[in-house]
Design a protein around this nucleic acid. Structure first.
Lengths: 146, 146
DNA sequence: TATAATTAAGATAAAATAGTCTTTTATATT
DNA sequence: AATATAAAAGACTATTTTATCTTAATTATA
């Protein structure tokens, strides 16, 4: 698995928030129901995003979570790094310590190229970009297999 | 992590065998010592490769493991699929069930392209190709960080 | 101010992956 | 045939990831 489940869930929840009007708090219960993700697990993931400053939250009635910034300025890469860290984009695909230009693993050149493209592609996709094109491209954004 | 540790270890051990004369059995202890991989863990991984028909083994004195086929005809992809299965090359990067052309995740087109290239690249690298070029390209093939 | 709603926090459990240890089986050599 | 060597098999442990459950803290609203 390239991304952890926590990371996938975090991305889906962030896109859910991006599709709602900014400034409104959305309850985690609603998100977990609509996306078919475990409520408590999602709560923890969103706490991480909150600690990382990507979302804000409010307790109590009418509380919930909301993007901390404009959806234009948050990329999928931001979410991924907040949850899974930067290892995916730095590590040797064979897991060799010290793999690099001087002493490369047999996959080094190829994987370095691929992972950079992957990273650029994640970076190039803002939450707003995706949210705006859900209808046009019929994007699937839920764990529900409809 | 893109490949499991078991898979990385399996690849390194296979390359180790490929670099030795074919037909000779190499003890797992020697491989685990030289590559700095846990002996018992490696034994299990090599049992999988044995079950999958990629290597052969012999018990007793002078026993060990050896590639079942010519190193020319075994690709990294063969090893990966034997150990980790085909999920990496089939699954949605966001883990969405039913992600596909009709109802794609936002990363679908890009990732489908990348994972196919990754697969092709793994398929294109035979154990012999790599073994032959270790000196030329100064390949790192051990968990030891020298 | 009391109540209900909602996230935060922390304990626990389940599953997957990674790793270790012991015993059994096979085989080459003496 | 006896012995030593090495893989096979299986039980066990540890760690990480995923998931659940309970209680505490916060806050809007009646």
């Amino acid at each position: 698995m390239v991304l952890s489940k926590a990371c996938s869930y975090g991305i889906l929840a962030s896109l859910y928030m991006a599709r709602k009007k900014e400034g409104n708090y959305i309850s985690i219960r609603e998100i977990s129901n609509d996306l078919d993700i475990s409520f408590h697990f999602l709560t923890k993931i969103l706490q991480t995003l909150s600690e990382e400053g990507l979302i804000v939250s409010l307790r109590g009635p009418k509380g919930g979570v909301s993007l901390a910034k404009d959806a234009d300025s948050v990329s999928l890469l931001d979410i991924i790094i907040a949850i899974d860290g930067v290892d995916l984009f730095n590590e040797c695909i064979l897991g060799l310590p010290g793999c690099g230009h001087a002493k490369p693993c047999p996959m080094h050149d190829h994987w370095q190229n691929e992972r950079e493209k992957l990273k650029a592609n994640f970076d190039n996709k803002s939450l707003a970009d995706i949210a705006d094109k859900v209808e046009e491209f019929k994007y699937r954004l839920s764990m529900k297999d409809l």
